[in-house]
Design a binder for these strands. Structure first.
Length: 424
DNA sequence: TCGAATGAAAA
DNA sequence: TTTTCATTCGA
């Protein structure tokens, strides 16, 4: 079903709300629906004239929808529901020929509400650019969870019967600090902005067609590379069981932007991440840093380049980051990293990208296996992979390498230790 | 700190 | 051709 929304501001622009039944989760009793908004709005992230000023007070002609006053500010991820828990047993599996009259009234209300959200001033669709945002972005996550961007939908042939798209269940829950981190295996990406107190709904962005998803209290991006590229909004990973807290919540962990952007120094990108994401996110950071007029993030950015080894020591989350600790350790031990303040790490090659992505999965698949044994398995798997399967890793590795060479031409230079010179 | 995988790049 | 090092984490 496609539901169109026309705004007063852009009568020729049509926003299409598309209900999609996710059939990739084969074997599951309940189909998983994805609500997508294929917007053709000039203000949409993919629209060329995004920088143009636009009035935000012209909302579409839609009926008002009462928001639930009982909603709390916290939502926890569960594994079984996408976006919002709504009755959907009557939803047809076939999206192409669902008559609108078959939807229940509350579902229609939900769509209406979505449309209102989609065209509200808080909507990313209605905002020109990240830099024009009136409110800063706050990220609630540890630096370790800020990775694995732009994860593509898992292929249906995956050995695991996980759904093709992350499926989040937002519900009221006992507040729990967002502390889950460093897992490669689950779910999606979450961005939280400092929404106003009366904001009840947020946005999700999907790859590749700038699809936005709505949910409660916050921003979410299924494939946030686009979010990073087009809006400069970094995202952190959300896992099942995580609880998202509003920015003002006492248990919320808010980090400054310097810490957020430090995470981009990591090459912890999945192979499907476009190299453009890395490049453009770096550009976004650079631009943001220049606009920050010497704020902590900008200073840190200018000082550190793009190397994650050169992260800001003042960054709270990085203080506990093992990578940063390694850098400090290397620095104090007088190794190669200490020879150059801007010393970078090598970008991962294709196999490293592959191994990083699947190591956790294989570790779980083979409990008790030594990590070296996992490496053997990964190597064996790598060798058996077809070129087409390796291609995305290769391309990603190449893109990372090129970008690293551009930013740090000396990145690969290492002294050899033939004559006993110490390094590494 | 080592090791196990692979691969790019330097020496 | 050889060596280094990028990731990961248990030993």
């Amino acid at each position: 079903m496609v539901w169109e929304v026309k705004t007063n501001q852009m009568p020729n622009a049509v926003q299409k709300l598309l209900l999609v039944m996710d059939k990739r989760a084969s074997g599951m009793n309940d189909s998983l629906e994805l609500l997508q908004c294929n917007e053709n709005l000039p203000s949409s992230p993919g629209y060329n004239s995004c920088d143009e000023h636009m009035e935000l007070d012209d909302l579409p002609e839609l009926q008002a929808v009462q928001s639930d006053p009982t909603q709390s500010g916290m939502y926890q991820l569960s594994s079984d529901v996408s976006h919002q828990e709504y009755p959907r047993s009557s939803w047809n599996q076939n999206t192409s020929d669902i008559p609108e009259t078959t939807y229940r009234e509350n579902e229609v209300d939900w769509l209406t509400e979505l449309a209102n959200i989609a065209t509200s001033p808080q909507s990313p669709l209605m905002q020109c650019s990240f830099y024009n945002r009136s409110s800063p972005v706050h990220i609630i996550a540890t630096s370790k969870s800020l990775h694995s961007y732009a994860r593509p939908p898992p292929v249906s042939s995956s050995s695991k019967s996980e759904p093709a798209f992350p499926h989040h269940h937002w519900k009221e829950e006992t507040p729990v600090r967002h502390e889950r981190a460093n897992s490669e295996s689950e779910s999606g990406i979450f961005c939280m902005s400092s929404l106003s107190d009366d904001d009840d709904l947020g946005w999700c962005n999907s790859w590749p067609s700038t699809v936005w998803h709505c949910f409660l209290k916050g921003w979410s991006s299924f494939y946030p590379s686009l979010t990073v590229v087009q809006h400069g909004i970094p995202c952190c990973e959300v896992h099942i069981g995580d609880v998202c807290l509003p920015p003002g919540h006492p248990d919320a962990i808010n980090f400054d932007d310097s810490g957020v952007f430090d995470t981009f120094k990591s090459y912890d990108f999945t192979p499907m991440d476009s190299s453009a994401v890395y490049v453009l996110s770096s550009m976004a950071r650079q631009r943001r840093a220049s606009l920050s007029c010497g704020g902590p993030g900008g200073q840190d950015f200018a000082r550190s380049g793009f190397s994650k080894n050169c992260g800001s020591p003042g960054s709270s989350q990085l203080s506990s980051n093992s990578l940063y600790a390694k850098a400090v350790k290397n620095h104090s031990s007088g190794t190669v990293s200490a020879t150059s303040p801007n010393k970078c790490k090598r970008p991962m090659n294709a196999f490293m990208l592959f191994a990083k992505k699947y190591r956790v999965e294989y570790t779980q698949m083979y409990p008790g296996k030594d990590n070296r044994a996992i490496s053997v398995i990964l190597g064996d798997r790598w060798k058996k992979m077809k070129n087409e399967e390796r291609r995305m890793y290769t391309l990603e590795a190449k893109a990372l390498a090129e970008e690293q060479k551009r930013l740090n031409p000396d990145c690969w230079k290492r002294k050899r230790t033939n004559s006993g010179s110490q390094q590494h």
